[in-house]
């Protein structure tokens, strides 16, 4: 369908396709997306960045988690056009050259996965958890809202609850995040 037809169909005289720029894993990428494209589909289908995974596609499983402008964020409930100019770091981009990120190392060390499908999301989420804890952000299980945060097992379980693992590798994930936290 041509641009002219789209204008007539939408009745707004405004295009459906929009050109946006994202920085993905350190690389500036420009692309033209249909306004309905999610950030997840833009990354996977348009930019061939496939480490964020499509699980439920409805914000329930966490496998599409990336670090968006420095914080863990779902990409399935995000329209790409709304994030023009943003910086995305995926699990793939966490590794520098050939050296794995220390959270990735910890997942390897503790078998924090089985099939691996949820792992990129788990790893990005864990990096976010460590950063939030460092900033002193409390969680649902934090006893004293105004005290320093200590990443106990309960704290890690609660903070990672947005990432499901159907293989049930939770004990390994917990151990990995705990080691990465230096606990």
């Amino acid at each position: 369908m041509g641009e002219g037809v789209r204008r007539a169909a939408s009745g707004y005289g405004v295009r459906m396709d929009t050109t946006i720029e994202l920085t993905v894993d350190g690389h500036r990428r420009q692309l033209t997306v249909d306004t309905r494209t999610t950030l997840l589909d833009a990354l996977r289908e348009r930019l061939a960045v496939t480490s964020p995974k499509k699980g439920c596609d409805h914000g329930q499983c966490g496998s599409c988690t990336v670090l968006l402008d420095g914080r863990r964020h779902l990409t399935c409930l995000a329209l790409a056009v709304a994030f023009d100019g943003s910086e995305v770091v995926t699990a793939e981009g966490l590794a520098a050259d050939d050296a794995l990120h220390h959270v990735q190392e910890a997942f390897l060390e503790h078998d924090g996965y089985q099939c691996g499908y949820c792992t990129p999301g788990q790893v990005c989420s864990a990096v976010g958890v460590l950063d939030e804890a460092k900033q002193g952000h409390p969680s649902h299980v934090t006893e004293d809202l105004e005290a320093d945060v200590e990443l106990t097992d309960d704290e890690i379980r609660e903070r990672m609850s947005g990432n499901l693992c159907r293989c049930g590798a939770y004990p390994g994930i917990l151990a990995a995040v705990k080691e990465a936290a230096g606990a």
Partner: peptide, 23 residues
């Protein structure tokens, strides 16, 4: 919010997930 409105901190922290709360 943590000190003067703890009910609000607690309610927010009990909702959704860490990722969704950022969003």
């Amino acid at each position: 919010v943590r000190s003067a409105f703890p009910v609000l901190s607690r309610a927010l922290l009990s909702g959704a997930s860490g990722q969704l709360r950022h969003q």
